[in-house]
Simulated scan of single mutants.
Amino acid sequence: MLSKEFFLVGKNIILAAGSLILALSCFFPSIAYCREVAAISPENNIRILPFKHVINIGNALDAPKDIFWGVELKDEYFATIKKAGFDGVRLPVRFSDYVVDGKLDENFMKKIDKHIEAGLNQGLYIILDFHHFNEIMDKPVENRHLLLQIWQQLSVRYSKYSDKLVFEILNEPQKNLTADLWNEYLAGAVKTIRQNNPKRYIIIGAGSYNNIADLKKLILPKTDNLIVTFHYYEPPEFTFQDNPYLGYEQYKNIKWQSSFSERLKIARDFLQVKQWAIDNKVPVFLGEFGVNKNVPENMRVLWTECVRKEAEQDDFSWGYWEFGSAFGIYDLNKNEWDKALLQALLAKEKNS
């Protein structure tokens, strides 16, 4: 007859084996298993947006007035983007450079009209993003009225446009535009927009450059069809490295190799956003993420694919930064996509 001690030893071996299996299942690629352990259950999903795969056309309409930043926006690009498999374009625009006596320049606005209509005619969602309003970041109190003036004009101008036109109130609040001020200003902007666009999607983000950590400070206006955005370039020493414009020229040869710890960092960051979105009952748009061209191609692909997959796992729509400039995936001279990066973004989509 087997002894009591034998059974105790056997039980301990089984428990130890179970713990080992649990540990291994969390170490080997199963971030998905760790996600379940993190207590976000499958039924607690956030609302899915009608647009999912967006690309930013940066360094074009967001350049300072009369200064060329390397990208001339051509209406034919919208057909190229649609054919590749994207369903939306984010258009960053520096509206504040085109205001005279409180009025938006009509010639400039006709140009914007044409671009928006070209995108909508392709069946794309168009996110009209107020970008690089540097004055309000430095002197928020003095420029609050201008923010509201601009959105009043835009909301009237585009009130009859397709609901596939989406408004983004302000890119990356920062500096002197504190969380308290930003909460006050964005509420005023939403109220202004809703006077003429009662159902249009509106995107807002937290302060500190649409940072995840500042979501807890964001006060959501009480309105339907509100979307919260965040931007993700972690770690910036990798994504921005060797780029003097961004102030990261001192960082060189920084690697990102899709290790478990690197992927887990992204998963944890995104789960933090998802839990916040569940608690606040809002959908999420990852409005910017990308790696600049000074980084080796293989690592750009690894990081981009990982971020994209994590966003989709958490039901976030996403917008890659950007189309054809320093972070771009389209060669404006050769008129061709970077196939590897396009595949990293649209693995399940039609690439051409």
Rank of each mutant, 00 (worst) to 15 (best):
N143P: 03
Y209M: 09
Y158L: 12
K199E: 10
R144C: 02
K191E: 13
N176Q: 13
L177F: 08
S159G: 08
N134S: 14
H145N: 13
S162R: 02
R157M: 10
E168S: 06
L177M: 07
N134Y: 11
L220D: 03
I136H: 10
N196E: 10
R194L: 06
F133H: 13
D180Q: 14
Q122D: 02
L165T: 03
A179D: 13
F133Y: 14
V141R: 08
R144T: 02
E184N: 11
L170R: 02
A179W: 08
F130A: 14
R144A: 07
Y125A: 01
L128I: 08
L170E: 01
Q195Y: 03
E135A: 14
G123V: 04
S159H: 15
I193K: 06
Q122R: 10
I203L: 14
L186N: 10
I219H: 15
I127K: 12
Y125E: 01
I203D: 11
Y125M: 02
K199F: 11
Y125D: 02
K164S: 11
Y201D: 11
R200K: 15
L120T: 08
K175N: 12
I202D: 06
L146N: 05
E142A: 14
D138S: 14
K164I: 05
G123D: 04
I169N: 07
D129S: 12
N171L: 03
S155P: 07
A206E: 00
L124T: 08
S208C: 12
W182S: 01
A213N: 14
K199P: 00
E184Y: 15
I204E: 02
A179F: 08
L146P: 02
G205V: 05
G123M: 02
H132S: 10
N210D: 13
Q195S: 14
I127Y: 11
R144M: 06
I193T: 04
W182Q: 01
I127T: 13
F133E: 12
K217R: 09
Q195W: 02
G207H: 00
Y161K: 15
Y185N: 02
E142Q: 12
Q149M: 09
A189H: 04
K139R: 14
E184D: 15
S155Y: 05
L170K: 04
F167E: 02
I136C: 09
I202E: 04
Q149L: 08
K217S: 08
N143W: 10
D163Y: 02
W151I: 07
I136T: 11
N196K: 10
P198D: 04
D214Q: 12
L181A: 12
T192K: 11
L124C: 09
I126K: 07
G123T: 06
S208G: 13
W182H: 05
L165A: 03
A187V: 08
M137T: 08
Y125C: 04
T178S: 13
L146K: 14
L128S: 01
I202T: 08
Y161A: 15
I126P: 06
L186V: 15
Q174E: 15
K217N: 12
K216F: 05
F130G: 03
E184W: 14
Y185L: 06
L181S: 13
Y158Q: 11
L148A: 09
N211Y: 00
K160V: 11
A189W: 03
R194D: 05
L124M: 08
T192R: 09
L215W: 00
P140Q: 01
Y201R: 13
S155F: 04
P140C: 01
V190Y: 00
V190L: 05
Q153I: 10
D163H: 05
I169W: 00
L177K: 01
